[in-house]
């Protein structure tokens, strides 16, 4: 791996971590566990389009691990990791079809992140009563995904990168 690529990846991880931190400082505006803007996904979608899918996986998982270590509480690593893995699989799969724009890819990522989190919560809490939140989480994933996708699309278009 070229030094420049490693540097760019490290910078992208740092950006994702900063975005996670910024988001953690914003109070929850909906009282549903798991509803988030997912600002860090800007960096992941950016990486997916500019660096490649393997790089996006690395960046996302390292981000989740480090952020949970720094700002996480107890089981938050498990929720985030489940969300991140499902979200990455969905985004990589959707992008590979070449039928969708980065906005749709980001929407799929947002929705699947929330589904993964609630799935993990159901496993950890050993109860399916949390399915009550599912429609609200899918809807919030769509809305957040559109916003994040538009921002990421602008970044992908504007930032010139040769790695």
């Amino acid at each position: 791996m070229k030094t420049k690529k490693i540097t760019v990846m490290a910078l992208t991880v740092a950006l994702a971590m900063i975005l996670s931190f910024v988001e953690s400082q914003i109070p929850a505006f909906v009282a549903i566990p798991g509803v988030k803007m997912g600002l860090a996904n800007i960096a992941v979608v950016f990486a997916l389009y500019k660096l490649g899918w393997k790089e996006a996986i690395l960046i996302s998982l390292i981000r989740v691990f480090l952020v949970s270590l720094l700002f996480g509480t107890g089981a938050s690593l498990f929720y985030s990791m489940a969300g991140a893995v499902l979200s990455l699989l969905g985004m990589i799969g959707l992008k590979a079809t070449r039928q969708f724009s980065s906005v749709a890819v980001s929407v799929a990522g947002g929705v699947l992140h929330n589904v993964g989190q609630i799935g993990m919560a159901c496993l950890l809490l050993e109860t399916d009563v949390l399915r009550y939140y599912l429609p609200f989480l899918v809807l919030s994933g769509i809305l957040a995904g559109v916003v994040i996708g538009v921002i990421a699309a602008v970044m992908v278009k504007r930032i010139r990168l040769e790695v």
Partner: peptide, 15 residues
Amino acid sequence: LRMDILLIALLLAAT
């Protein structure tokens, strides 16, 4: 764009 809208519409329906 049409595929994007289709996907989002499907997800809204799922919601």
